[in-house]
């Protein structure tokens, strides 16, 4: 079945609401408006206002209330319009949701799912375009995922709801309209493993969320030059599945990490450090990265494009690494 990412996410939410009476959805404009990215359109009529709860513009209160409802036995799904606005609820997420299990020595836990859009590409300018996944991936007590494929958009939510602890789901804004084939793999979606999207011999491109498609595009361009790139989708940003991407780098001996976040203090930096720690002697070249330029994302199209990782920048990074030697092997 060919469906959009939005449709896949919607099916996942629908399943969750239909199968578990403890599940409810709350957030700004999830009901009457139909969801700011139209993911929950029609849900208010189908499930009613008790379970599809439009909230006021009160990010701290409704995310905090999600934590309380989870503590009280419900399975809330809280939608924050974008990661940019989640900063108004950062306190609830970092100082409460992530800590209750530990602070209470395991007496309490917070089975809460928080969904938020992230990323740039729609000319929404600096206050609507940032990728702050790594802020959350820094925090023990949280699980952070970034479904990049139709299967993961369809499958990861159920896995998130099965977790006993808080899970943050990042949905890249440029993915909602992307269409693809929904197979059966979604039924096995877990929150622990990275996935090899395309195998290759010469270099490993490590990406997640909105950059996976760009890495695949870059791999296709490189293939035309005889460079065989492997693409790994991290899928889960915390905890990182070191085994999968490190094994890949051991095979290809080279890695480029592609991250829409800013370079300094990035998740890319963490992945690179782990490769250094675990596969240093397998490397043929220093690990490289393609990140966003260190500027607030600008409005003008040409500036926004220039600020973000692009397939051409990934290709250039790989070429630099291979020193122009097409199809170089060890």
């Amino acid at each position: 079945m060919r469906i959009s990412y939005r449709e896949a996410m919607r099916m996942a939410l629908h399943d969750a609401l239909a199968s578990d009476p403890r599940v409810f959805l709350m957030g700004e404009d999830v009901g009457k408006y139909g969801g700011s990215y139209a993911v929950s359109k029609g849900f208010l009529d189908e499930f009613g206002p008790e379970r599809i709860r439009d909230t006021p513009l009160s990010e701290l209160a409704f995310v905090g209330a999600g934590i309380g409802a989870a503590l009280g036995g419900m399975r809330p799904i809280v939608e924050v319009m974008t990661v940019n606005f989640s900063l108004l609820a950062l306190d609830a997420i970092v100082n409460s949701a992530a800590l209750y299990r530990h602070m209470s020595a395991g007496q309490f836990h917070v089975p809460l799912v928080i969904r938020m859009a992230t990323g740039a590409g729609r000319q929404l300018a600096a206050q609507h375009s940032h990728s702050l996944e790594n802020w959350y991936a820094h925090v023990p007590g949280l699980t952070v995922v970034a479904p990049a494929t139709i299967d993961d958009a369809r499958g990861m939510l159920a896995a998130a709801l099965a977790e006993p602890d808080p899970v943050i789901v990042f949905e890249h804004v440029m993915l909602y309209n992307v269409e693809g084939e929904l197979g059966d793999a979604w039924r096995e979606a877990d929150l622990r493993s990275a996935r090899v999207m395309k195998s290759g011999r010469d270099v490993t491109l490590i990406a997640w969320g909105g950059t996976v498609g760009k890495a695949i595009e870059a791999a296709e361009a490189l293939a035309a030059d005889g460079i065989d790139a492997e693409v790994v989708d991290l899928r889960v940003l915390r905890p990182l599945d070191d085994a999968t991407y490190v094994a890949s780098v051991r095979r290809t001996h080279r890695a480029v990490v592609v991250d829409e976040g800013w370079r300094s203090g990035s998740l890319a930096a963490e992945v690179m450090a782990r490769i250094m720690e675990q596969a240093f002697y397998d490397l043929d070249a220093p690990v490289a990265r393609v990140c966003s330029e260190e500027v607030p994302i600008p409005y003008a199209k040409h500036l926004e494009d220039a600020a973000l990782p692009q397939p051409a920048k990934i290709v250039a990074a790989v070429r630099r690494m291979l020193g122009g030697a097409a199809g170089a092997s060890r």
Binding site: L124, A125, A126, P296, Y299, A300, L303
Partner: peptide, 8 residues
């Protein structure tokens, strides 16, 4: 200079 657009 085109950095903000309509909202900024």
């Amino acid at each position: 200079r085109g950095r903000g657009g309509s909202m900024h």
